[in-house]
Amino acid sequence: MRQAFTPTADGVAVDLGPEERHLIGLALAVLSGYGGDPADPATSRLTYDAHPGDPEKSAAFDDLVEGELESARRDDRTLFSETLDSDRLDAEQADCWLRVVGEARLVLGARLDIEEDGWSDDQGDTDVPEMILLRFLSAVQDELVVALLGGL
């Protein structure tokens, strides 16, 4: 099988067809459907409490990073979208791909109610669209990580 990502001096070269890029781009569709709705299981996964059990310190932390996480996520999605058709990614763009794909995986995992390790070995659920996309994005993220680790 051909390599989708090959290490370069400052990032990776990308060898992906339009269909694959379209599927990877579905990460954005997954994330655009996530709006912090408390009823969405993804909300609790993507909302962090840095000081569990200490509301005062948690509030201070939230004040410190207020808006930072959301704006960093927005910037990532913009850069990801702008580079989705690129044949080369520099290190920052590649990291951004990892984060967007990773975040979409977390949303999918939460909605699929994945709570235990070992789910990826389970051959069931192969006809559930969210699971198919999760597995595909897992493969993409893993390939990109392997290429980037080679360059560290």
């Binding site: 995986r105 995992g109 070992g118």
Partner: peptide
């Protein structure tokens, strides 16, 4: 903390990238 969704390879990459750890 452990979570069942993040890939092991990705977690290794993040630790290397953010903290400069060896492989």
């Amino acid at each position: 903390w452990n979570d069942p969704v993040n890939l092991m390879s990705f977690v290794v990459y993040v630790f290397r990238k953010l903290f400069g750890h060896s492989m």
